[in-house]
Computed example of a mutant assay.
Amino acid sequence: MKTVTTESGIIYEFNKTNPYVIKVPSGTTMKIETYDCFQNQIQTPETEVGRIDWDKINPATGPIFVEDAMPGDILKVTIEKIEIGKQGVMVVGPNLGVMGHKIERMESKILPIKDDKIHFNDIELPLNKMIGVIGVAPEENGVNCGTPGAHGGSMDNKMITEGAILYFPVFAEGALFALGDLHAAMGDGEVSVSGVEVAGEVTVKLDVLKGDRLSHPMLENEVVFTQIVSAETLDEAAKLATSEMIERIVEKTGLPLSEITMLMSAAGHSEICQIVDPLMTARFVVPKWLLKELECTLINE
Rank of each mutant, 00 (worst) to 15 (best):
M1G: 09
K2P: 11
V4K: 02
E7N: 15
S8C: 10
I11R: 07
K16C: 05
I22M: 11
V24I: 14
V24H: 12
S26L: 10
S26R: 12
S26E: 06
T28E: 12
T28Q: 11
T29N: 00
E33G: 04
T34I: 13
T34K: 03
T34P: 02
Y35V: 01
Q39L: 08
N40L: 09
Q41Y: 10
I42K: 00
Q43I: 08
E46A: 15
E46F: 15
T47F: 02
E48V: 11
V49H: 05
V49K: 05
R51M: 15
I57N: 03
P59M: 03
A60L: 03
A60I: 05
T61L: 08
P63C: 09
P63N: 09
A69W: 01
D73K: 08
I74M: 09
V77E: 04
V77T: 14
I84F: 00
K86I: 09
Q87E: 13
M90K: 04
P94H: 08
N95L: 13
M99H: 10
M99D: 08
G100D: 12
G100F: 06
H101D: 14
I103D: 00
I103Q: 02
I103K: 03
E104M: 11
I110W: 07
P112S: 08
K117V: 09
I118D: 00
N121I: 03
D122F: 12
L127F: 02
K129Y: 14
V133R: 01
A137E: 03
E140Y: 10
E140H: 12
G142F: 04
C145H: 03
C145W: 00
P148Q: 14
G149D: 01
G153P: 03
S154Q: 05
M155E: 05
M159Q: 11
M159K: 10
M159A: 15
E162V: 00
I165C: 10
F171H: 06
E173V: 02
G174K: 02
G174N: 06
L176N: 02
G180A: 07
H183K: 13
A185E: 06
A185M: 10
M186F: 08
E190V: 14
E190S: 12
V193Q: 07
G195C: 08
A199Y: 07
V202N: 01
K205P: 01
K205W: 05
K210E: 09
R213E: 11
H216K: 15
H216G: 04
M218L: 11
L219Y: 03
V223R: 09
T226S: 13
Q227V: 04
I228E: 12
V229T: 13
A231M: 11
T233R: 13
E236C: 15
E236F: 09
A237L: 07
K239Y: 12
A241Q: 04
T242Q: 13
T242V: 05
S243H: 12
E247T: 01
R248W: 00
E251S: 10
K252C: 10
L255M: 15
L257A: 08
S258F: 07
T261I: 10
A266G: 07
A266V: 13
G268C: 04
S270T: 14
Q274D: 05
D277S: 12
K288C: 06
W289C: 09
L290T: 03
L290A: 02
L290I: 14
K292W: 02
L294T: 09
E295L: 07
I299K: 15
I299S: 15
N300D: 13
